[in-house]
Design a protein around this nucleic acid. Structure first.
Lengths: 233, 233
DNA sequence: GACGGTATCGACGTCCTGTCGAACGAGTCA
DNA sequence: TGACTCGTTCGACAGGACGTCGATACCGTC
């Protein structure tokens, strides 16, 4: 019999940091406790540090444990697995990206073009700031169902917001009608995901880091408005 | 010391199947031989069969060997690793997709819109016909450098062809000027890759299989021409 | 100064990987 | 026919990573 990662999701709706308890409490094996928190933090810090230098597959539980100054079995006292650590880290970055794109969407936004540019930039900046994690997430996604689910939820949120924005642009007559807004949103967000990944990972053909936002924006505007210059404010 | 997968690329320019020798000869450990060829084929068939049902990570070398009716050590007589099998399989599918998209590009193509639609459809059809492999490839890419390189080479070829086509559309005044054609090609091909993957894998938000070509085409046309209706033939 | 929960680790069993060396069988050549 | 080669096969091994169990040390408290 194979043991499942064993943790009941509980509140994965990740409220934006309830100030006190980190989302790790739900993810880890242990209930909240004061003394061991530094260990937990040490593990997380070690993970982020190591992942900035090597791929996830080259980081073992032992590396994480040693990096945090504890033994391998002790690691399991804090996290159920290597992936659980990653999930905790991702929760944070996702909350960051979520906040940033939400801000971009809700902010004043002079004209429409500027609004979209801000949203794409927010997304770009956040993941660029956590390159290692971004790469590790992509790696884990193919083998870990929880990572897949977390990403699906997050992605879905962005798609919803984009689809709503596209529909509102269509309603005011600025954006051209065409394929369903939601399908368009899925396609464009997928593009961003893959293009940014290629740019950050550096292997294979990619758009230069300095141009990537411009290029993505150009495709977004072309797909939504039919040209790079949406009309009206 | 860790042994590398140990095979000198030789001719990875994959000529479209020299009729006689399969590309596996270059990939595997052994020189061409008549008697063991069925074993080799059996391994490849087993791999494709198993990958249609479970992810790559759930298929062990032992599964492959048993499936082909041989023992695990014997497997290593034919292939250097599980990934080498996958690489051989990918060589084939890639050649297929390459031929299909090349045909789409070179074919008569009544109007421009139809040309692009054909190219996207070719890509879509090929990978849909090998769902399991497509998913496995994505999984292997994150851990295996050879898979990454193979994909980079293939992807680059498509980008080249697309960029050239975009430039020629710009030259004749049909496509709008904008970001460099190559950057645009990278972005659009990346989108296709990610969107199709999501559609085939079925987890997370995705475009329905029946709509995906239409949606992708719409974004391509919007990005290249500025609307879904390119002018002229 | 016994107790209960926190925290820690040594040792174990399992799974998978890749390799080594011994064997087996079918041709070939003396 | 018997020795010799060469393609092919596999049992057995060693290594690495994972996750678990049970014993212990630490610590605040009653």
């Amino acid at each position: 019999m194979v043991l499942r990662d064993g943790h009941d999701d509980g509140n994965l709706g990740h409220v934006p940091m309830p100030a006190g308890r980190s989302p790790a409490a739900a993810r880890g094996r242990r209930a909240a406790r004061p003394s061991g928190d530094d260990r937990e933090l040490a593990i997380l810090a070690t993970a982020e540090r190591l992942l900035a230098a090597r791929p996830l597959s080259a980081v073992s539980v032992d590396d994480l444990a040693r990096g945090a100054g504890i033994s391998r079995p002790t690691f399991y006292f804090y996290f159920a697995s290597k992936d659980a650590v990653l999930l905790t880290l991702l929760d944070r970055v996702v909350a960051e990206a979520d906040a940033a794109t939400r801000a971009a969407f809700d902010s004043p936004a002079g004209d429409a073009r500027e609004g979209w540019r801000r949203a794409i930039t927010a997304y770009y900046e956040t993941f660029r700031a956590h390159r290692g994690l971004t790469l590790a997430w992509a790696e884990a996604r193919s083998t870990n169902a929880e990572v897949r689910e977390l990403w699906a939820r997050v992605f879905d949120g962005w798609v919803d917001r984009c689809a709503a924005a596209i529909e509102s642009e269509r309603a005011r007559g600025a954006a051209r009608a065409g394929v369903p807004a939601r399908d368009l949103a899925v396609a464009l967000n997928s593009m961003n995901e893959r293009v940014l990944y290629a740019t950050f990972s550096g292997d294979g053909p990619a758009v230069a880091e300095s141009d990537v936002v411009t290029v993505l924006l150009d495709v977004w505007l072309g797909a939504i408005y039919g040209s790079s210059a949406p009309s009206g404010s």
